[in-house]
Each structure stands twice: as C-alpha cells, then as structure tokens.
Amino acid sequence: MAIKDYIRERFFPHMWCPGCGHGVVLNAMLRAIENLGLNKNDIVMVSGIGCSSRISGYVDFHTLHTVHGRALAFATGVKMSRPELHLIVPMGDGDALAIGGNHFIHAARRNIDMTAVVMNNRIYGMTGGQYSPLSGYGISATTAPYGNIDQGFDIVELAKAAGATFVARTTTYHVQQAAELLQEAILHKGFSVVEIMSQCPTYFGRKNKEGGAVEMMKRMKDITTPIGSKAKEAQPELIERGIFVRKDLPEYCSEYNKIIERAQKQGRR
C-alpha cells in the first residue's frame, strides 16, 4: 500500500505550521507502518493534547485523541483488553513528560507492549511557546522572558531508568533512521520509547534565534552523532542517536495471561 492509504486525506493539508517537525514524524511513522505491512484494523493510535497529538486525527487507524498527558493510561486500558492490537502513542514533550511524566515512567516500568513516540520540540506549541521540561536551561520562551532556569530531562536516560525495554533517539533530519527506529520499536515486544528531536520553527526557532525549519534541521544534524562515534569522544556535548536499549523482559499482557491461567487453575482445584 502507498502511504496515502494510511491517512485520512480529507483533512489535508494538515493544521501544522510550515516546516513543522511533527509532519516529518508523521511521514516517518507512515513509512514504518507501510514497511511492516500492518493491517490498519490492528493499529490503535492514542494521543493526548497539543500540536503533536493532532497526529491521530490524520491517520486511518482506530484513533483515540484523549486528554493532556494521559494517552499512555488510556492506551494501557486498550492494550490490556485487546493485547493483539498494536498500540502507538505519539506525544509531545510536555504531554509525555510534564503532565504525563508519571504515566510515562509507570508504563515503562510495567513493560506493557506499546510504542511511545516523543515528538520533542522542546516547547508548548499549541498554547503559543511556553517552556517545557525539555526546553533546558537558558532557553527563551513566553513564560521564560528572562531565560529559563529549569533544567531539562534527558528522555533516553529517563526511559532507561524507568525500565523501558527499547529506547531510541533520532531527529527529523535523520528521517530514514526515524522510520527504521519506529519500525523496530513497533516490532519490539514490550514498552518502546522513540524520542524524535523535532523542530518548532514558529515558537522555539523564532524565540531562540535558531532560524526556520531548514536551519533547525541542519542544527540537529550538527549537534547529534551516532551512538559510540569517534566524534562523540572529541565533542562530548554531542547528542547520540540510535538504539540505546533493546532487551527482552517479560511483557505485561503476557504476564497477565499467566495470572489468568494461575487463577483459573486454582479455581478448578
């Protein structure tokens, strides 16, 4: 199938700004799903609130556009009831890690089989450019007119510490890698996290003098490097891209199936 077969064409052109990284993430996600050849009826996309969360409206799957920060909790209910479905949960950085931070770490801890995609543009776009937990120190935002004094999270480290069994990072510049990582993450049985560093030219770029979409994407190329590269040794401040964690641990729904077996065996005794 062509990627157009996976979208709800009548809603295009989409509502995102020119050059918005979220469109690139959508593009990569559709490539990943196309490559996997998944049946559209077997995919449930659950999103929260924010620019990023509008992604669910554009795709022709079962789509659940929920409340701010809680997409993973809704997704947990869907997955527990119908473990055979593929759950994809795209979130913005504020959605996933500020208001949704608790759900994020607990979904990771349970190792429930779903793919969390953090579309990290380091800003609240929908409300007009406030600082997020990923903005980082010194960043300018509408709620940080004198510069941000909040330290930022490292999504990869957070996901690792919380127990996610697949953790990866890339950027919208590295779109082929993004599609590959998403593909791997969807195939992974367990909780997978893919951070995609993304650009918000309208608010982050303008506020922080990083230029337009093109300049922001070039910058992401310059400030990142593949995991374990020589460049990282020379420039330790470079952000690594690639798969950080991939391990097999008991998946939550499979474990619950064993609970059911145990409970029913005891009942028969």
């Binding site: 659950v46 809680r70 947990t76 009831s81």
Partner: peptide, 29 residues
C-alpha cells in the same frame, strides 16, 4: 477477575485508572 478471564490493573493513580477504563471500554469491555 482473572478467574473469569477478565483483567485487573492497579494503576499509578486515580487519573490513570479512569483513563484506563475508558480505553478498555472502547474495545468492548
């Protein structure tokens, strides 16, 4: 619940609990 093939989950808070039952209801539970 597991005795009848149903599912129980203790969520991280009541917010998540309410969200999870909504997700499950949508699948027909």
């Amino acid at each position: 619940l597991p005795q009848i093939g149903g599912r129980f989950i203790q969520m991280e808070d009541e917010i998540a609990s309410m969200c999870a039952i909504i997700g499950a209801s949508l699948t027909g539970s």
